[in-house]
């Protein structure tokens, strides 16, 4: 089974979610290989979990003023602020029979690659069920998975640098609550690569790529024209639509 590694590129939130789903559809149809994709977000974005309420989780007005994209994922989990300079996202999309049947076990396996990747830049991290990765007791990566028609899609973020004030500016936390105490509280629970490593984001990408591909036969590839065409349709009709993003 030959995998495809799609190297890091930055896209809008709508295209990022659309590309992941387009690849999922093509893997389901046997037209694309199992894929590991690294990406970033430009402009900055907020993604919310499949079951969350956009209005409740996100300061939509502030996002519009700042030009921050807001998108609903097809995966569950919580709201995530995707800083265009401060984060690396991965997706792994493959037939589900390539992974443990149990969802919790497959989180453990896939998050294990991220843990190994962080280890390569000197960060000792561990999987923290249900879906987090922690280092020094603080969260450094959040992950979310879905399975559709025999295909597993897991995407996750690795925090490279952390700007808590910026994050609170777009998530729905009242100004009164953005106290120094609260920021301190978040900084005690969440951390980033920069806090424990001098590695550049390029080095982080390389380490994560290596961790995912070790022991696998793979080609470095790109998102195919057919996948891009599907993704453009999804970006227009689903992920860029109010119907989808504000459905809850």
């Amino acid at each position: 089974m030959k995998w495809r590694l799609v190297k890091f590129s930055k896209n809008s939130a709508f295209m990022n979610m659309s590309i992941d789903e387009a690849i999922l559809e093509m893997v389901r149809d046997g037209l694309s290989p199992p894929t590991i994709r690294l990406y970033g977000w430009s402009p900055d974005a907020v993604s919310i979990g499949c079951f969350q309420s956009m209005e409740e989780e996100v300061n939509v007005k502030r996002c519009m003023e700042l030009g921050v994209d807001c998108v609903r994922r097809i995966t569950g989990g919580g709201a995530v602020y995707h800083d265009s300079e401060g984060e690396l996202t991965y997706s792994i999309i493959a037939r589900e029979d390539l992974f443990p049947k149990g969802i919790r076990e497959s989180y453990r396996e896939i998050c294990g690659y991220v843990v190994r990747g962080l280890g390569k830049i000197g960060i000792s991290a561990e999987f923290a069920p249900i879906n987090d990765i922690v280092t020094h007791g603080k969260k450094i990566s959040g992950n979310a998975q879905t399975r559709r028609e025999g295909v597993l899609l897991q995407h996750g973020t690795i925090l490279y640098s952390l700007d808590v004030r910026k994050m609170f500016g777009v998530l729905n936390v009242s100004k009164e609550k953005i106290s120094d105490k609260m920021i301190k509280n978040v900084e005690e629970r969440v951390t980033s690569v920069r806090s424990y490593s001098d590695a550049s984001i390029e080095k982080l990408c390389e380490s994560i790529e290596t961790a995912f591909t070790e022991g696998r036969e793979y080609d470095i590839g790109r998102v195919s024209n057919e996948e891009l065409s599907k993704a453009n349709g999804l970006a227009k009709n689903k992920y860029g639509s109010r119907d989808w993003n504000f459905r809850r």
Partner: peptide, 29 residues
């Protein structure tokens, strides 16, 4: 040990509408 669950219920004598939101996972969604 789990996630956040928020429920909105419209009701009279009987339940008329329910919306469940939160950061949990459910497969299939």
């Amino acid at each position: 040990g789990g996630k956040l669950v928020e429920v909105r219920v419209e009701y009279g004598e009987r339940i008329l509408g329910v919306e469940i939101v939160g950061d949990f996972f459910m497969h299939p969604e």
